[in-house]
Amino acid sequence: MIPTPPELDPVIHAQARLRVMATLSTLGPGDQITFSRLQELLDMTPGNLITHLRKLTAAGYVNTEKRGGRTSTTFVEITPRGRSAFDHYLAALHDLLTPSGHVDRVSSPAHDGRAPHTKEP
């Protein structure tokens, strides 16, 4: 694993989880997606996706919910905290592209995912 620059949330700073967050954040607020459809959109193996969803769930960025009886379906959604953390992560990436902009950037939003996303000019 590469070292994570201090500005970048280590939970999101893995390409697989970054893609999961990009997918879930594209859905509308409150929208949920089944595990199998998410897997299809990501082109991931079930085992891989489960592993990454566990890490994102542990960080409070993603919720999973099982519904139904014997043939239960798992629904996945991004949490407001996860959406905020993802916005911060993208802002930090943009700051890295324009070095002058990231001087004032607070550290990883992983510990404070509710901080508002401030847009850079």
Partner: peptide, 14 residues
Amino acid sequence: DRSQDVVSSDPPSP
């Protein structure tokens, strides 16, 4: 890039 974590010795660029 499929579903692998970042394992390369070179960090991916922003």
